[in-house]
């Protein structure tokens, strides 16, 4: 656990010491603010809870795209610059490398969530919202971020190029998104199965202020599978 913490601390420091992390967060905040104004706020006689739900909708999309860009460098850059040899030759398990990197990106993403708080607070200032709704929405966003980052870490482990890593993760995230549409086009019993794979259906209750264990389990499971796959990729590279 100490090693995971060490890697997390170093990676987080790397985000904070270089411009790339700040640029990504700044762009994410700009787009999120823009979408909030364009889609969440407007509309005839909207209730505060509806504005809040729409805010979580747009922020979930921004979170997923941002997570892909935040995670693309995590392992691919280490391979590109040769620093992976440092981790490989140290008494560190591959799982610890993957977890350390994943957690650092998740913490950095939470920094972004912190900066978005002004939008729900604005809604609260001009209307009536439940704090539970806000907490539930942010829990959902954290879970979407966790899933996207885990997929991003997997993509980063697969590729040496950061661009290719981002594209791979983007495609995987897109596949998990379009299952929702694909599910609608299929017949029973595949409808529920395919739609069940899509993250959107599992996020919807969170954005409306509902926390259900089965949806938490979905995000936890997909994140676990992606991180497990990333660990396997790192292990396999030693045999190559």
């Amino acid at each position: 656990m100490r090693t995971v913490f060490l890697i997390t601390r170093r990676e987080l420091g790397s985000y904070l010491r270089t411009m790339s992390g700040y640029i990504i967060i700044a762009v994410m905040l700009f787009i999120d603010g823009l979408l909030f104004n364009a889609f969440a706020v407007p509309g005839p006689a909207k209730r505060s809870s509806e504005i809040l739900a729409d805010f979580f909708t747009v922020t979930s999309g921004v979170t997923m795209i941002g997570a892909v860009f935040l995670s693309m460098r995590l392992i691919a850059e280490e391979r590109q610059t040769g620093t992976l040899a440092l981790l490989y030759s140290s008494p560190v398990k591959d799982l610890e490398i993957v977890l350390g990197k994943f957690l650092s990106a998740l913490l950095f993403l939470m920094l972004f969530f912190g900066f978005t708080l002004y939008m729900p607070l604005l809604v609260a200032a001009y209307g009536k919202v439940s704090w539970g709704h806000i907490a539930s929405g942010y829990l959902g966003l954290t879970l979407v971020g966790s899933l996207s980052l885990a997929v991003g870490v997997f993509g980063s482990a697969l590729n040496k190029s950061q661009v290719v890593a981002a594209v791979s993760a983007g495609v995987m995230c897109l596949a998990l998104t379009t299952c929702w549409i694909l599910g609608k086009a299929t017949d029973r019993p595949f409808t529920e199965l395919v739609m069940g794979l899509a993250w959107w259906g599992h996020f919807d209750p969170f954005r409306q202020g509902l926390v259900q264990t089965k949806h938490v389990a979905y995000f936890a499971l997909v994140s676990f599978l992606a991180l497990f796959a990333a660990t396997r990729v790192l292990e396999a590279r030693r045999w190559r």
Partner: peptide, 19 residues
């Protein structure tokens, strides 16, 4: 295997703890 953004001391401390 160097992390360019770190200081020499910070980097060596990280590696020491890692090892």
């Amino acid at each position: 295997p160097l992390y360019d953004e770190m200081t020499v001391g910070g980097y060596l401390a990280f590696v020491a703890e890692l090892r």
